[in-house]
Every structure is written in structure tokens, then in C-alpha cells.
Nucleic acid binder design. Structure first.
Lengths: 146, 146
DNA sequence: GTAACTGCAAAATATTTGCATCCTT
DNA sequence: AAGGATGCAAATATTTTGCAGTTAC
């Protein structure tokens, strides 16, 4: 069965929070669920919208920051000054991201996806530069819109 | 001689503005000069700071937007929610950017550079996705800080 | 019970808009 | 002279901070 039950998702988010030594609270569970329920990345505004009027705006800010700090989600830079957040894979941990996948922003539906299977070639930098992290963002039309 | 005189720079920015059918005004000249005077990219705040108290904050917003529209500068996405702007090369024109170079953000001095000579390998996207634009941002330590 | 989390209020910051004035062409 | 650009004021929007009350463990 591919469809998860509400209980299963609820357990999943609970585990994720406990694993990161965070209290399991309503807002954290709800926000994590939003990430799990859909494939793409979410901006702060998306979360407020999808969560309805359920949480204070401040709680969303703080929750997202906490998740980033713990390595539960990572940020995706975009050109329109709206940071998007996406779930990290298991290898991520506090202060240490391994998101070596690329990010894809659909110019039609405006969703952002992490494409985990796309590998990027090594980049040769000029003499004197050393790389710590490479971020690749591809803009185009996604599978659903094509 | 590698050092340009003030007059030469003044001419250069004037030409650039005229070429894009923009009035040659004090603020536009000054802001373009800031870009020419240094190798990296500038965020809105950098410009306000470097320009001193010379211009209204609103003028900076409008000027940068105008430059982006005309293809004089392009934006560089960063993860910290501060859009940076960098001069476009000659091939850029209104509504049509050709910035196929990568961007490098130094984690030490926090400067952003366009590395024009670094070419990125073609990226193979999954079936169904089509790419319009690829943005590569490398974070690391730059030549001056290494 | 205690530490952590949330919500509210408010401050600080950032961005946009309207309009009167000034400047470039 | 005419259209465009600027500066100011003010409206919006965004993000941060402090604190008191509540909740998870």
C-alpha cells in the first residue's frame, strides 16, 4: 500500500522529532506533516497558508528555524527573495548537511523539488578557491506541467 | 595602464546607461560605479552603505529594479534571504540573461564573485523535466582569503 | 516540577506606493 | 516642454524580541 494512514504519518513525525530531541508539539507535528504530504519545498508563506489560521506567525518562524538548526529541513535559495525549506534526507544531522542533490523550480506551477537522483559533475574552480558546498538550482518545467 | 581614471569610468557608466535608453542621472551613475569599482556582487544593503547617505533608500530599490529589467545587472540567489546583484556581461540584454557562469560566495569575507571561466557540465534531468536556466552557487573560501 | 514551547504585543526592519518636485533629454 | 527620475511621507509586509501563560516530559 502506498497511501499512508494518518496514524502512520503521525508516528513518523513523532519519531523524527524525538530523534532530534525536540518536544513533540502540535505545531511541530503539523508543520512536519505539511512537508511529508507533498513532494516539494515550502516557503514560510506556503506554510502559513496551508496550515490555515492554526498557528501564530511567530511560531512558524521559530519552528522552521529550529528544524533548520536540527538538520530536519534545509533551505533552498531562490532568486525571488523567498527562502524555501525542504525536508532533509537521513544523512543530514545537526550542523552538517549533505544535500548533494539539485533543486528544481518549476516556472509554471512554481513548486520546488529536490531531485535526489541527479548528480552534478565536479566543478573545477580557479586556482586559490576552495569549495565547501555547491548549490545547484535548475529552473524549468516539471514533470507534472510538461 | 590598468587603473582607470575617474573620467573613464564616468564615460563607461554613461555609455552603459545610454545603451539601455535610460536617463543618465546621478544615482544611476553612482550605483553603476559601485559595481564597477569592485569585483563582487552587491546586496541592497551594501549599496546603501557604500553610497553613504547619498540617496534615498527608495531610489536604490527602484534603480536596482530598473537595472535588472534592462539586463544591466542580474540577481544571485543566496540562502540568507538577501538578494545580491552583479553586473551582467555584454551578452545580456533586456529580458534575456545569459549568465552561464557560476557564482562563488566566500564564507570568510562574505563577498560574492561571478566566476566567468568556470563551465558547468550539462545536467541530466529525470524524464519529464525540462531546464530553462541553471544556477550554480558555490560556497567556500576565495582566492584572497585562502 | 521544570524546562521547553507557544501566543500575544510590540519593536525593528524591509519593501512598496502615491505624489509633488526636479532633472534629463 | 514633456517624460522620466527622485525624494519624501506613508502604507504594507516581513522578521525579531520579550514576556507571561501553557504544555511536554
Amino acid at each position: 500500500m502506498s497511501e499512508k494512514t494518518a496514524i502512520q504519518i503521525d508516528n513518523q513525525v513523532g519519531e523524527l522529532l524525538k530523534k532530534n530531541s525536540l518536544s513533540v508539539t502540535g505545531s511541530r507535528k503539523k508543520i512536519l506533516q505539511l512537508f511529508l504530504e507533498q513532494p516539494g519545498a515550502l516557503a514560510h508563506g506556503d506554510i502559513e497558508r496551508k496550515a490555515g489560521e492554526k498557528f501564530d506567525r511567530v511560531t512558524v518562524y521559530r519552528t522552521l528555524q529550529t528544524f533548520v538548526d536540527k538538520g530536519i529541513v534545509h533551505t533552498i535559495p531562490t532568486a525571488d527573495n523567498s527562502i524555501r525549506y525542504a525536508l532533509c534526507k537521513d544523512e543530514c544531522s545537526e550542523g552538517h548537511h549533505h544535500d548533494h542533490h539539485i533543486h528544481f523550480v518549476c516556472s509554471n506551477c512554481n513548486n520546488t523539488y529536490c531531485l535526489d537522483d541527479v548528480v552534478t559533475a565536479e566543478i573545477k574552480l580557479p586556482k586559490g578557491y576552495s569549495a565547501e558546498h555547491v548549490e545547484v538550482v535548475v529552473e524549468g518545467v516539471c514533470k507534472n506541467c510538461n
